[in-house]
Design a protein around this nucleic acid. Sequence first.
DNA 1: ACGGCATGTCACAGTTTGGTGACACAACCC
DNA 2: GGGTTGTGTCACCAAACTGTGACATGCCGT
Lengths: 226, 226
Amino acid sequence: MRVAGILLVEDDPSVRTALELALTRQGHSVTSYATGEEALDHIRARRPEIAILDVMLPGIDGVEVCRRVRKLDQLPVILLTARGDDLDVVVGLEAGADDYVVKPVEPRVLDARIRAVLRRAESASSDRITFGDLVIDRGALKVTLAGKEIHLTPTELRLLLELVRHPGQVLNRRYLLRAVWDHTHIADSRLVDACVQRIRAKIEPKPAEPVFIHTVRGFGYRFSPP
Amino acid sequence: MRVAGILLVEDDPSVRTALELALTRQGHSVTSYATGEEALDHIRARRPEIAILDVMLPGIDGVEVCRRVRKLDQLPVILLTARGDDLDVVVGLEAGADDYVVKPVEPRVLDARIRAVLRRAESASSDRITFGDLVIDRGALKVTLAGKEIHLTPTELRLLLELVRHPGQVLNRRYLLRAVWDHTHIADSRLVDACVQRIRAKIEPKPAEPVFIHTVRGFGYRFSPP
DNA sequence: ACGGCATGTCACAGTTTGGTGACACAACCC
DNA sequence: GGGTTGTGTCACCAAACTGTGACATGCCGT
């Protein structure tokens, strides 16, 4: 297992040094700070592999750091909080944290959580989905069919990604309009149909007999692998 | 120690499967092929961490694969050859191989060689990245194109490095604005475009048909080696 | 078979986007 | 001070994209 570059942010000095020591013993490389401001600077400058943030911090708190980090990068984040502060869980997950740990925490447990989050992040980073001949690379925003790159326009790509995010599920037009076009107004239009058609023309061997994007009459469209 | 993605190329099926099995047991992740053509495709598509090439192959031989790989990337290469074929050693090392192993080889020995080469490669590649003709030296903050030094301004260099840090990934303008300019404000700005344009003028042979920095309309830019 | 919908198809014009070169201004160095 | 360099902004233009509506086609219950 690779040694991780961990950023630890915790304002209580005794907790901070204890965790730092424990994590270092477990083979991690740890840098720690007491404030969110310092943490953000460190993240920008040093690009740690994962950040462990106490929720309660003077100044910029952990949730806020998490929120900003998420906007900037997909750096994995674990939030630390005092026991029983239920509200925080919701806020924290909303801010995009990958995991959530209640203090006091056993070093072994924290270590396991760290490794789990890192594993997840690693597998997510090769974010490439394959459906038979069709390969969709979400990082590179590339679609290939039988090895040949297919050019999709931004809207087509967003729609395809939305469909692919829910394989096997039927998505109705209203949902798709909101997700892809963020149209709040209810427009009964051929927009979705037209876009689906354009995608089919590009990725379906025989657009008249679609293999990937299926029409479910009266409901919407369903992406399912052949 | 991180598990390595190894590409093994060996035309003799019994040797191939034996080595693959042994290396897998040692904790490596191995993909193997019988021909140089397949190997080159694999390298382009999957970016293994190291390639182990038999010198004697039908079609494109190991030395030739090595030579082409070297031009493309700094992928570490170990050449395998039958005992006593002295001439090959010279040719192989000239082609840029990192190490040279004589068959038959003890799996433990091969494993040790692999680890040694990877260690060396890791320390060497951390400061310097090669994409075809383009060499980016992060330690010296210098960029050379086909051996000629290119002068980049600080902002241009930061942007290029940021793109290079995520090869193959599409980075959007907002992200780049934050990462390179740490602009927390204004999402709507042509700053990134202008800077990309300036970099292209310096590093792209034909800026109108970029080879390194690709525009992904509606999303952002992607650095990917030619 | 027929009528009524739901969906497919297509062309086009208005809009959006990014490339490009010019330019202003600040910082910096002689 | 005078020139040089780096950087942000702007305007213009070509190309790409997209929504729209009209029409064609297919599906389904009767």
